[in-house]
Design a protein around this nucleic acid. Sequence first.
DNA 1: TTGGCGATTGGCT
DNA 2: GCCAATCGCCAAT
Length: 186
Amino acid sequence: MPADTVALARYLVGTLLVRELQGERLVGRIVETEAYPPGDPAGHAYFGPTPRLRSLYLARGHAYVYTMHGHNLLNVSSERQGVGAGVLIRAAEPLAGIATLERFRPGVPVRDLARGPGKLAKAFAIDRRLNGTDLCMPGALWLAAANDRRRALVISARIGVTRAPDHPLRFCEQGNAHASHQGGLR
DNA sequence: TTGGCGATTGGCT
DNA sequence: GCCAATCGCCAAT
């Protein structure tokens, strides 16, 4: 796993997100990420550590789950322990357990099940109880190596941020319809 | 104890 | 495209 936040954000596109839930395995292929490197004015850690940010400062590969506008968002801590930085997982392509994903997001087309960070968390039943989880080990939530990461990345500005809005730190798999904000996919 | 503030979403125009 | 609902956090009362 890359030791640098931006490299990790690129690496995670194509990686498999695995959610083990009541004996069932839900799998999504990550297709969109955003990097929030150390010292980034848009990053949560910018104004220093607070108790809520604890898992953002864990060694890279731990889950940082927080609530925003009533939705949960999943991040992966991305630097060495003690440095606050992370990668936001914005969208995934459902691969397995689709019936269960649909149960968490009734009436939603498969293409939209995990298209957006809040939607992804809802579809995969990710909430703050998973905050701090080590994603490098198989468990309730973890990351599995991809068997196909050949596809090209499209780089664009991050979505919805108010500080440092122009930094090219958003990474999408080129042409993948499961990524959000198609406008950035030109 | 209260109020402003988001790395959002979904419905309506 | 616009906008309201949503809710935990944190600083200020």
